[in-house]
Amino acid sequence: MILGGIDIVVLIATLMAASTPVLLAATGELVAEKAGVLNLGVEGMMIMGAVGGFAAAVATGSPVLGFLGGALAGAAMALIFAFLTQVLLSNQVATGLALTLFGLGLSALIGKGFEGVRPPPTPKLPFGPLAEIPVAGRILFSHDWMVYASLALVAATWWFLRHSRAGLILRAVGENHDAAHALGYRVVAVRVTALAFGGALAGLGGAYLSLVRVPQWTEGMTAGAGWIALAIVVFASWRPERVLLGAYLFGGITAIQLQMQAAGYKIPVHLLTMAPYVVTIVALVLITALHRRGAQAAPAALGRSFHAST
């Protein structure tokens, strides 16, 4: 099926891979924000995951250990943020920005020796005859395992927040930390855990960029993906299933503009590259305009510091 020089089946298949980094990062950030912490450092955690994952994969020759390294690097960054905002009670907006600036710098420093290196390939899952099915086979059964793992993670996050007791506590902490504290829940511990989880997912997303999507290490390679992940959480009104929708929508725009570049459309390449960011803004505006309850959908204690006075 070819429309305007773009193969729709290939487009949908690329869309899933293109969305995976932001999908992972947005899911992680969703959990952190549900616990009431606004971590604007997603970009910094992602790029550290990209370089950490890349370094681990190249050093060990194993993409699996690479992804693990990426997750650890992201989580370590998140713990810096957690220490500053939860223990030292610093302003979350400013600290998140600092995390991004720091991560961009540190990743460039670490990545110096990895420029031009090729990472060990992440194989596609062998589905055998399933992959041969026309259309559906190419779309559903032609990916590497991280694509499926990211979908499983979204489902698990949805279940955890919606149906588990721990998820309920986490949401309580995010809605009203004073009440949660009065009930005997350990607000800071819950938040630190949520942040570490968010950081690990952002790191995984970054590692997917450097190990699969590109696959290479280049300075500043996340190019705003972390910020788009933050926007997707708002777009999704803090619901995991909508994060999936938002991420795939964004991935779709990215995939379309890449395909348009390849199909030789006479639009300057820089204007095409601009598209995902413009669309993200438009999507944010539309979603808040459509149901004027964007503000109410946010966890009530989002961005507020918790200090137990008694």
């Binding site: 500053l84 030292l88 610093s90 920005l97 600092a98 720091f102 961009l104 710098g105």
Partner: peptide, 19 residues
């Protein structure tokens, strides 16, 4: 990039000591 790390750390310390 080392100087960028340096500037990022400065902001971290500043926000932390602000306690």
């Amino acid at each position: 990039a080392a100087i960028q790390v340096f500037q990022g750390m400065l902001l971290f310390f500043l926000l932390g000591f602000d306690l």
